[in-house]
Amino acid sequence: MPREQQLSQVFVEIADSLIDDFDVIDFLQQLSVRCMELLDVAAVGILLADEHGILRVLAASDERTRLLEFFATQHDQGPCVECFQSGQPRTNIDLTASRITDDWPQFATQAQDIGFVATNALPLRLRGRIIGALSLFQTDPAPLSYQDVSLAQAMADIATIAILQQRTLAQSETERGQLQYALTSRIVLEQVKGILAERWQLSVDDAFAAFRRYARNHNLKLAALARDITDGTFDTDAIPHGVAGTAM
């Protein structure tokens, strides 16, 4: 499919989601997948800073724990931290270059173990403030073009808008409340992964896949369903979780 057509499809999809009552984590996860497809990169993550200014993973193109944990290593090293601190994009970084492996040994080693050879970080901007970063990884060293980088920045801006647009349970009046609520929702999801994995005797990744499939099929918001599960007000036996078809 030509990129223009791809882009207009993604645009319609995003607009549809944002006017609706959407789940911010699920939206950002799907945005990460679209970003990965449009830019032809291997993995995309969205990180949001907490009150200490430490970057936390909100969503990624692939929810498997290994990748989430890799994105989480970027809280103290890597281009996302630099991008977050400076507010400037850090693009086309060669992960095999000695300067990178010297500066960020843990990050560079883990990235290479997964097979990533290049990375990019774009700021999530909110009126002159930087609230997080969009993180892209490539298994192919071909640099992103100027147009690619502009598109990635647009996706980062959409992520910011979505985080501020989410409808929270208590309709928090403040932007800071919105950011905090998004981070809290992510933690609840992880707690629910553990609960379901143990109830169903599955891996946390398989348990989450079944949970998300159920939520999407029934038009339920991940965060709301997760909260009902932790409160004990939702019977998790209602969620099909047989091993068949749980592979993502």
């Binding site: 992880e190 707690q191 553990g194 946390v204």
Partner: peptide, 12 residues
Amino acid sequence: AVVHQATGMISV
């Protein structure tokens, strides 16, 4: 994340 996951598992 892994701490939250473990917390959920232990609770069950």
